[in-house]
């Protein structure tokens, strides 16, 4: 009987593989960076090998690559319009990176890079800074009118402008917390459910039967759900980014 306690949070522990310190900053190569590199490598492999044949009638791999391209391209076209085309590489990179990080995290004994707020907040900050930069380059100081929409009685402005500014600044926070919390919560749920099976299994023959009968199918269903959530969160990140891009380019 396993008596040692395993916290469901153990899977999020960061282990350093290669200690490195540059100018007072800790730049160690950790399992987080390993899995981020791995997902970048896998995305590159997926796209380059998938598109290497370029046959007229796509095979399975090529059509997967084409579907993922079409998915983001149509999302941008619908939400941003033709001006959004030049942001396609940016959005596609972010979407594929998050998708592959999320799915890699579902493999047992692997690490979910996107479950850490440091990673997701960095991603959200890139989106946020780009959004502000695009807004100011496109509209100049007129971008500040974003916070004061027209067609509103003047006495509402003192109330409206702070609200608009706060909601604008909350965008990267909500973007990053959503992704990190969803991934963390999902993985804890899986771990707790799996731990329940082990506990029942070590409680005699009836416990083992009950463990296989009840929590195991639930766990399988939950893994299916988590696979869906992994895709959904990447989709949500991408679609919110395209909404924000629309705001920055078209101003409402």
């Amino acid at each position: 009987m396993a008596t040692e306690k395993h916290s469901p949070l153990d899977q999020f522990k960061i282990q350093s593989y290669l200690d490195l310190e540059v100018a007072g900053y800790d730049l160690s190569f950790t399992n987080s960076s390993l899995f981020m590199l791995l997902s970048v490598a896998l995305v590159t492999l997926f796209m380059t090998v998938g598109m290497s044949k370029r046959s007229m009638i796509p095979g399975r791999w090529q059509s997967m690559a084409e579907i993922s391209y079409e998915f983001i391209a149509s999302m941008l076209k619908e939400n941003v319009g033709n001006e959004g085309r030049k942001f396609f590489p940016f959005l596609f990179t972010i979407f594929m990176f998050i998708l592959f990080s999320n799915i890699l995290g579902l493999i047992p004994f692997s690490f979910t890079a996107t479950s850490h707020i440091a990673v997701t907040f960095a991603l959200a900050l890139v989106v946020f800074i780009m959004m502000v930069a695009v807004g100011f380059i496109k509209h100049g100081l007129g971008f500040l009118k974003f916070f004061a929409p027209s067609g509103i009685p003047a006495w509402l402005y003192p109330l409206l402008i702070p609200t608009e500014i706060i909601s604008f600044l909350a965008r990267p926070v909500s973007l990053s917390i959503r992704l990190a919390a969803a991934m963390t919560a999902g993985h804890i749920l899986l771990k707790v459910c799996a731990g329940f099976i082990i506990m029942l299994g070590s409680a005699g023959i009836f416990g083992a039967i009950a463990g296989v009968a009840i929590p195991l199918p639930i766990l399988v269903a939950l893994i299916g759900l988590e696979l869906f959530v992994a895709f959904l969160q990447a989709y949500i990140f991408a679609i919110l980014t395209s909404f924000y891009l629309h705001d920055a380019i078209h101003m409402h």
């Binding site: 909500s174 917390i177 959503r178 919390a181 919560a185 959904l232 949500i236 679609i239």
Partner: peptide, 20 residues
Amino acid sequence: AIFGAVLAELMGLFAFVGMM
């Protein structure tokens, strides 16, 4: 609907973050 569900889900996740 998916977009709305995600926004609603975020509020639940805030509770989770508070718990953590």
